[in-house]
Amino acid sequence: MKLILHIWRQKSRESPGKMARYEVSNVNEHMSFLEMLDVLNEELIARNEDPVAFDHDCREGICGSCGFMINGVAHGPQRGTTVCQLHMRHFKEGQALWLEPWRAKAFPVLKDLMVDRSAFDRIIAAGGYISVNTGGAPEANALPVDKQKADLAMDAAQCIGCGACVAACPNASAALFTSAKISHLAHMPQGQPERRRRALSMVARMQAELFGACTNHGECEAVCPKGIELENIARMNREFTKAAWARRDEVAGSGRRRLLPRSFP
């Protein structure tokens, strides 16, 4: 099988990029998409050209490293699949494919199809956790968890952080990613103590990273390789709204200040 590839080539974060055309022959239908790019890269190296850079690691669809646009669809035509598990049997002889990196202000392109997704780490750092230090945990079965809630939490927790949702969203919104973590922890009883704070700080971070707003197109859900649902975004909206209206200042001991005499130095 022969394919015509139009690939975004960009040397570094600062330099401008452009689409370049390549032809790959000897494509086997059992190859994964990334193996097809490996073949292209071997040919490029043989010709003393710079191979195409793309993030990848586990190649079994769970690490979330890989991902780019294939003909304008994040992770390509097969639903529920990352590009590393997309096989060439889904393409036709002589087909032209356009490969572009995720596009978002918050995901600057580092090289070719490789982008910087560290904004996702910072969203998690802003509150996507339960504050327990190692060692102090109570007995695991001390707190029963409704099986259905645990299943819903698991549905949301399956997110692999690949960034396809942002790439596919016409607004480059990270609502699906952020809401998946907020949902996961909001479903678990262990997540209750920080529930409000988490919604406030994660949404704030998401915004500070210059991701767009969710306008309910649903593109994210359609390309998500793990089937994370839009319902999570609704839950995030609910969590955030409740938290924002019920919010109090978190200054420890502020109530006591009033007891001090006015002339206190």
Binding site: I130, G135, P138, P144, V145
Partner: peptide
Amino acid sequence: QCVAQGVPFAR
């Protein structure tokens, strides 16, 4: 430890 962190183990 993992349950306290909110890991959604099967139940």
